[in-house]
Amino acid sequence: MKNFVAYIDEAGDEGFGKLAGESSGQSNWFSIGAAIVDEANDKLLPSWRDEVMKKFANRKNRDLHFRELNHDQRVHACSTIASKSVGGCVVSSCKVTILDAQEIEIFKRPQHLYNYLTRFLLERVTAACRQKAAAQGARASLRVVFSRRKGTDYEKMREYLEFMRDGKEKMTPVRSIDWSVLDPANIAVENHKVRAGLQIADLFTSAIWKALEPNGYGNCEDRYARILEPRLIKLGGRTLNCGLTTIPSYSKCPLNDEQKAFLDWVIDQRKKARN
């Protein structure tokens, strides 16, 4: 048995009140992402986090939090983690596309969008773990650790996973979480500041979110995501819709020039890898 751990964090918010853009408000994008390691590398996560933190002056604690870092520190943090044996997977929802959807009232319910994106995330993570283990002639087992967030009921999350596992959905999904890899009972919730894995998951998730979420001037910052892209999980060498998934899909997303340039660059990495 090959054992893996996925640490899960989020960036942005779930709200649909006043979406941001070039003025203050709730974020246009909401992202959920994971840092994935095998059992051996799980033990190394604190040392990887400390390797990042030791370069920062006047840092008395070991709590690595993306939003508290300046640009240069973010570049350093992402560059350091990009050199490690860790996989990343991020699912990002363009919330403006939900505003006119028939299901908008459902998505406004507390935790609904969070659970929905988590499903997409775990579909991809369990598939990657199964594939990695199979390459070594083994079966995969995944433990999931969520970053504790206010207002989230993780018992409901577990029930949601069990509901899907037991085939009680009205519509058969296109993809499915690999239940041979994940047991819904095998999830935990921890505080961000006490788990290095959650802090590294924050880097992956926030880096992708920054590449898609316009700031107060309408600009996106994709440098952090470009640095971490080699660590995003791949399917047939393809990152998009595997290590990086947008909802709706790339072809249906209303993208500005910077967002499109970033996603086109991600797609282009597969072509370069083939040559």
Rank of each mutant, 00 (worst) to 15 (best):
F163N: 13
M164R: 11
R165S: 07
K168E: 08
M171H: 07
M171L: 12
T172S: 03
P173E: 04
R175F: 04
R175P: 04
S180T: 05
V181Y: 06
V181H: 09
A185W: 01
I187D: 06
N191Q: 15
N191A: 10
H192D: 06
H192P: 08
H192Y: 08
H192Q: 11
H192L: 07
K193P: 10
K193S: 11
A196K: 10
A196N: 09
G197T: 09
Q199W: 15
I200S: 09
A201V: 13
A201N: 13
D202Q: 10
F204K: 14
W209D: 08
A211C: 08
A211K: 06
L212R: 10
L212G: 13
G216F: 07
Y217F: 04
G218W: 10
N219T: 14
C220M: 12
E221H: 15
D222R: 15
R223F: 14
Y224K: 03
Y224A: 01
Y224H: 13
R226W: 04
R226S: 09
E229A: 05
P230K: 03
R231M: 02
L232N: 02
K234N: 03
K234Y: 11
K234I: 03
L235W: 12
L235K: 10
G236C: 05
G236W: 09
G236L: 06
G236P: 07
R238S: 00
R238M: 02
R238I: 08
R238K: 06
T239P: 00
T239A: 00
N241R: 05
C242D: 01
G243T: 01
G243Y: 03
